[in-house]
Design a protein around this nucleic acid. Structure first.
Ligand SMILES: [Mn+2]
Ligand SMILES: [Mn+2]
Ligand SMILES: [Zn+2]
Ligand SMILES: [Zn+2]
Lengths: 143, 143
DNA sequence: AACGATATCGATAATTTTTATCATTAACTC
DNA sequence: GAGTTAATGATAAAAATTATCGATATCGTT
């Protein structure tokens, strides 16, 4: 999986005429080693722990490349912080978020997706992307 | 409708012990005269046109009060700009957005809402709010 | 392997949006 | 009307992201 994603980025870089740099390699390694929904600042700190010299502008720039390459998705939740998560090709999911502890549950629902397409079609739109976030309290935060 | 909303805000202010100021009156008047999805900056300019002396911090503060009073909803779309829209008590809608011309179509779909509740229940959540945005191209922007 | 062109980097300034601070002003109570 | 204090407006500050730019590293070509 990780090896595959590295290959994808490498191919993307080739196609776009981008150079292979130590920084991009390292940031991709660290990003792939993390789990879901990491903020730029959090990732920057992790990367800096491995290589003191890396600037945060580079982390910002590189994450945008990952999105462009189809490896990552940018998500902005209720708290306004921009986060990135791994993107699995061909898959999609939405988020159920606890406003108490900020935990996130991912879900997929084809019935909703189909209804979305119907609504869009009714207005002559073709959907390119969508964002569905459900906010509530998880079982442990309800007490 | 407008008179009713002014009454609601007035009652809200009484309840919270807030004072009735010229600024709040004016900002509410201008806000109610606008149509959907206005940014703070846009509203600030409109308000300033009516009364040069008003500060934008007051507009920020007052819009938050409108939300608290149930008169307005804050929405943050793809472009990152925070906007406010009138809220009709007991009603809810989601957004279909054209990424070409930024036009917005509002829709309601009870079937989707029901599916959302089912998904949440499956994870022991009770939904407090949700956000559904469909992004695509409108008929005129598809050419 | 060295060269040359230039993409990329890191530091930092600049932007953008929103919030905090605080002295002054204006509502409300009596 | 006087006193109390919430609210305002100007401005500083914070927070997040983007732009700028000289120095450096990459890479195709020698
Ligand atoms: Mn996710
Ligand atoms: Mn709307
Ligand atoms: Zn929780
Ligand atoms: Zn359009």
């Amino acid at each position: 999986m990780i090896r595959e994603k590295k290959r994808i980025f490498s191919a993307f870089a080739d196609m776009k005429g981008l150079r292979a740099t130590r920084q991009r390699d390292l940031i991709l390694d660290v990003f792939l080693s993390t789990h879901q929904h990491i903020s730029v600042e959090e990732l920057y700190l992790k990367v800096k722990a491995a290589n003191r010299g890396i600037g945060q502008a580079t982390v910002y720039r590189t994450l945008k490349l990952f999105v462009e390459a189809g490896l990552a998705r940018e998500i902005v939740l209720h708290d306004g912080q921009t986060r990135y998560e791994h993107l699995v090709a061909g898959e999609h999911h939405d988020h159920l978020i606890c406003t108490g502890c900020n935990s996130i549950i991912e879900f997929e629902n084809e019935a909703i997706e189909e209804l979305q397409r119907e609504i869009a079609a009714r207005h002559g739109f073709v959907i390119k992307s969508h964002k569905l976030e459900l906010y509530g309290l998880c079982p442990s935060c309800r007490n």
